[in-house]
């Protein structure tokens, strides 16, 4: 990983950590219990976004082609 990307990632992780800390100080109104626990959106966002990338990459491996559609 090049230097600028590593720095950006570190900065984002620090911001995320600060947001999670802040989450302990507000009153959460969860609808399904777990979504009201502090930091839920942080780990769920990481997992959700990672799953989205995995799903798209898998789909791309199966159905992405390098050429344009013949009739486009």
């Amino acid at each position: 990983m090049e230097r600028s990307r590593r720095l950006a990632l570190m900065a984002l992780l620090v911001v995320l950590a600060l947001l999670v800390v802040a989450d302990f100080f507000v009153e959460d109104h969860g609808s399904f219990w777990i979504d009201g626990t502090p930091g839920f959106a942080a780990w769920f966002g990481l997992v959700g976004a990672a799953l989205a990338v995995v799903l798209a990459q898998g789909w791309g491996l199966l159905l992405r082609r390098t050429e344009e559609r013949a009739d486009d």
């Binding site: 950006a8 995320l16 802040a22 839920f40 959106a41 942080a42 966002g45 976004a49």
Partner: peptide, 17 residues
């Protein structure tokens, strides 16, 4: 706060991959 965590988490994944 919920939404900001979700978006920053997605940004972390973006930079990673």
């Amino acid at each position: 706060l919920f939404q900001l965590q979700l978006l920053v988490a997605a940004s972390c994944i973006f930079v990673m991959v």
